[in-house]
């Protein structure tokens, strides 16, 4: 490699190193703010104050869903297997919402400690399998969300 080319190569790599380091620091500084949602554990850690607007994510605790008979209101518990949080939501839930399903609720924390959601999104996991395989896994004792309409 000629000296000119070597110089050019190092100049470009130096620029990339600089930009890379800057971005790395930016990403590190953003680490908490770039979270899309808080888990119940993170929520307890940060001691979120009442009235704070944020997103709460986790699994719908099996057996925790209670629907109001008079309205579209629904109460459920979001868990990350360590901590739990009561949630109230009034509106239409996504099709994939069910017990044992990952969900993300955005809303505010009420003074009484209940999370009032204004939007509930279903979070899908990275597992893909045909229904028969899912049945076989359930028989083997694995916990899986139930199929739609079941």
């Amino acid at each position: 490699m000629t000296p000119t080319r070597k110089r050019r190569l190092f100049a470009v790599l130096f620029v990339l190193l600089g930009v890379g380091t800057a971005t790395g620091m930016l990403v590190y500084a953003l680490s908490d703010n770039a979270l899309f949602f808080y888990t119940p554990t993170k929520m307890a850690e940060e001691q979120v104050a009442a009235g704070t607007k944020f997103r709460l994510g986790g699994m719908v605790l099996p057996g925790s869903v209670k629907r109001d008979t008079q309205s579209l209101g629904v109460h459920f518990v979001i868990t990350d297997n360590d901590a739990e949080q009561d949630v109230f939501y009034e509106g239409i839930l996504p099709d994939l919402f069910r017990e044992g399903q990952g969900v993300i609720a955005s809303g505010i924390l009420r003074p009484d400690g209940k999370f009032e959601a204004t939007q509930v999104l279903a979070k899908h996991d990275e597992n893909y399998m045909p229904p028969e395989v899912a049945d076989a896994l359930r028989e083997a004792g694995h916990e899986l969300p139930t199929e739609p309409g079941v």
Binding site: A34, F36, F37, T39, G57, I104, D125, E126, Y128
Partner: peptide, 11 residues
């Protein structure tokens, strides 16, 4: 992996 996201992890 770094952040909590709505998007799922790698399959």
């Amino acid at each position: 992996q770094w952040w909590t996201t709505l998007h799922q992890g790698s399959t």
